[in-house]
Amino acid sequence: MIFLLRALWAVIRYDLVLSFRHKSNWANAWLFFVLVVSLFPLAVTPDIVLLHSIAPGLIWVAALLSMLLSLPHLLRSDYEDGSLAALLLSPYPLPFLILSKIVAHWLVSALPLILISPVLGVALHLSLEEISVLIVTLLLGTPVLSLVGSVMMALTVSLPHQSILLSLLVLPLCVPVLVFGAGAVINVGLGLSNEGVFALMGAILVLAVTCAPFAASGALRVAEF
């Protein structure tokens, strides 16, 4: 047990070390997020009412697309250098190893977006309460995107041109998260309660955490090496 935890920690730690050394891979996706959100008022209109009403959806769509940009970094390089085979042949259960990789990926691809989103929220005239709801929904929703993405990544990892297929596979499955996430922030403005939305998003997250690592391992087991 203690050996398993140590191995999982090693996977997370070395993945983070690698991400830190290849910052440019990730900075592109972070920059994309910030740029999309901040260019919108310039391109559309600086009108406060309009911006306030589209802000939740805008931030959520930008976060989703930004995570889609960084998704190929999840397993692609491991496949190419052969370390994915080492993961498959490890005596430890593959779903746990995959889950560690997903955690490391989420920490690098989603957490920075969540940390910067309050600033973007203020820029788009969201109230303090709306910003806090936005952060809660991002915290509940972005791991689902990473988890769903990992399954699709595992399915397409051995294909030569996977990125188009990847977006087609991931985006439809992420729509519920997007709808609930952006909807919760709008609910605040309408004075509606968000308990139900949080519970639903939490349930989706639990479902994804329990199923996705197993689905991803199953997909990797039949992938061509």
């Binding site: 070395y14 070390v17 690698l18 050394r21 290849h22 390089s77 190419e80 250098d81 052969g82 370390s83 085979a85 080492a86 042949l89 090496f225």
Partner: peptide
């Protein structure tokens, strides 16, 4: 019981 070394060596370039 198994050790496998494929034609992709599994050495991570960044580490």
């Amino acid at each position: 019981e198994l050790f496998y070394l494929g034609h992709k060596s599994g050495v991570k370039a960044g580490l």
